[in-house]
């Protein structure tokens, strides 16, 4: 593999990784705050992408506006899911909550198939035009948009978690839900907020990656598996670990795919197993230990 090819594969891998990172960060945000592993993260994004497709083709909404509307729709979906599904089961077992997200995933797939049918469709990229050459690296315009969107989202998420009182509240809940609540943190509204943010991120991620595939109810399946790999690699507990994990997975996957195309997807599952065996806390996760 020449240096030029290596660089190109790496940068291209970073753009795919940025999408895994977006999905993964959303999952970790919801997991850390509400203690629910959301297996519907990918399909939430898928469903939002169908809504966006409908807006573009049938309602003829301009593309730039669709992006904003889709993110808003993601937030609304997350809000509704928390308010009308998660909240009512919260007092039951933890397993019920996880099963509920699996059910939610199937619900979105069914809804998409029912409302828009399962026939694969081409989804146009946000921006089109000739690829841009930066040194030896040739980058599609959509790829640049993906990278920028991921960076901006990462920045906003950081501001949310560390600069707003709601973000501080979310972090306090993740460390001690009971204490946070007794101290006056309105946990139900923080849960809703976090579900809204996480689902909006899912919508954005799906919308960014869909031009690589075709729009069909199953297109986020593998993306979600890789986002989970990213989370495991980065350490379950850290939103930023998920981001770095996603980028690493994206790059490694692209390099592996170039040399050994046949094992591209299964390779990532091998990575999960190795990471869990060798360093179960991941790259940035904390070892399970409590001082008090």
């Amino acid at each position: 593999m020449s240096m030029d090819i290596f660089l190109n594969l790496t940068v291209r891998g970073l753009t795919t990784g940025a999408v895994y990172a977006l999905v993964g960060m959303g999952i970790v945000l919801i997991l850390q705050t509400t203690n629910v592993m959301n297996f519907a993260q990918g399909d939430t994004g898928m469903f939002i992408t169908y809504l966006a497709f409908f807006m573009i083709t049938t309602a003829k909404v301009p593309y730039s506006l669709v992006l904003i509307l889709a993110i808003a729709a993601g937030a609304v979906v997350g809000l509704l899911v928390e308010r009308f599904m998660m909240r009512s089961v919260r007092s039951r077992s933890h397993l019920s909550l996880i099963m509920l997200t699996l059910g939610l995933s199937l619900l979105f797939q069914g809804l998409a198939a029912f409302l828009f049918n399962t026939e694969p469709r081409l989804f146009p990229p946000l921006v089109s035009g000739d690829p841009i050459k930066i040194g030896p690296v040739i980058l599609g315009r959509q790829d640049i948009v993906v990278l920028l969107a991921a960076i901006v989202t990462f920045g906003i998420l950081y501001l949310f978690l560390y600069r707003t009182k709601q973000g501080t509240a979310a972090r306090s809940i993740s460390q001690d839900e009971y204490a946070a609540r007794v101290l006056g943190i309105p946990t139900p509204s923080i849960y809703m907020l976090v579900w809204a943010i996480g689902s909006a991120m899912a919508g954005l991620a799906a919308l960014l990656i869909v031009p690589r595939f075709s729009l069909e109810p199953s297109f986020m399946g593998l993306v979600q598996v890789k986002a989970f790999t990213a989370i495991v690699l980065g350490g379950m507990g850290s939103v930023f670990g998920a981001a770095v994990g996603g980028l690493i997975i994206g790059v490694v996957e692209n390099l592996v795919a170039y040399q050994f195309p046949a094992i591209k997807d299964s390779f990532m599952l091998i990575v999960i197993v190795i990471v869990l065996l060798v360093m179960p806390q991941g790259l940035f996760g904390k070892r399970q230990q409590r001082r008090f």
Partner: peptide, 18 residues
């Protein structure tokens, strides 16, 4: 029940949320 991975400042601010 302090929040271990937050700073002293952030811990105290949680009490001001409401």
């Amino acid at each position: 029940s302090i929040f271990p991975s937050m700073t002293v400042r952030e811990n105290i601010l949680v009490g001001f949320h409401s």
